[in-house]
Amino acid sequence: MTTLFYTEHANGQLNDQSLKAISGAKEFGDELHILIAGSNIDEAVNQASKIEGVSKVIHLDNSEFDNILAEKLTSAIFDISSDYNFFASAATTTGKNVMPRLAAKLDVSQISEIIGVESPDTFIRTIYAGNAIATVQSSDIKKVLTIRPTAFQMSVAGDTSCEVVKISPENIPSVSEFVKEELTKSDRPELTSAKIIVSGGRGMQNGENFKLLDKVAAKLNAAVGASRAAVDAGFVPNDYQVGQTGKVVAPELYIAVGISGAIQHLAGMKDSKVIVAINKDEEAPIFDVADYGLVADLFQVLPELEEAL
């Protein structure tokens, strides 16, 4: 039983979320192949070939995959699908975009964002924003899954490199084209890989006040996140969003500032190791999950905190 795992990469490095999800994919079958796509990516291909437990790397070597479009990548994976029993990727925006399209092409149901593997056909995943945990058994012969990175450990490099096979698919569909990408520029670490996250909610009152969080984050080398309410109110872009419909994070320390703690937000952060809540409403539900709560006005606390660190 062989698994094909699609890994993402950027700037010569495999994506951290993919590296974590690969550890989940190792639990499916007895052999694991990595699929990586793009041209002039030798460094990332090399890194993939050294991951412990990987027996083959398939490199879709074609500039058509320098920016991933679901139509093109799905078609390329479908072409080689007869060799595989499992298809998986991290539950990132790319994985979520591509894998269900592949599943439907293969006529199988996808199991989304699994957090555990019970057996090769039985998986654990959260539903209702993490308010319930389902154990799901698949009767499909081929299985397509996305894997929640925070539920698994980062894969490590082994001593040897495995075989790398380059393929270049023909008949790549041309119904879609990449136009541009505007990535949020930040000196801060990425939300999904940061050890510490400082997040703001509606209590921040406006986007300008997020600078107060930035200053604290700078002292802690932390990423800055936000609740859906803060994104909804237009304080910060959507890629800051932690929660059911945003990113799921599990840092060592999560500091929630002016966040009431709606279930949709808790879904994205309650597996953090230590949670701190700062809110002036002592009834706020965020205090029910916080290890350390401080009932106070965030506009007084944040400058003090920056000073104290």
Partner: peptide, 16 residues
Amino acid sequence: RLKVLKVVEPPKRQAG
């Protein structure tokens, strides 16, 4: 294609 074997509550986090 999928059978839900069970649905349980998530582990509760204790307030600190």
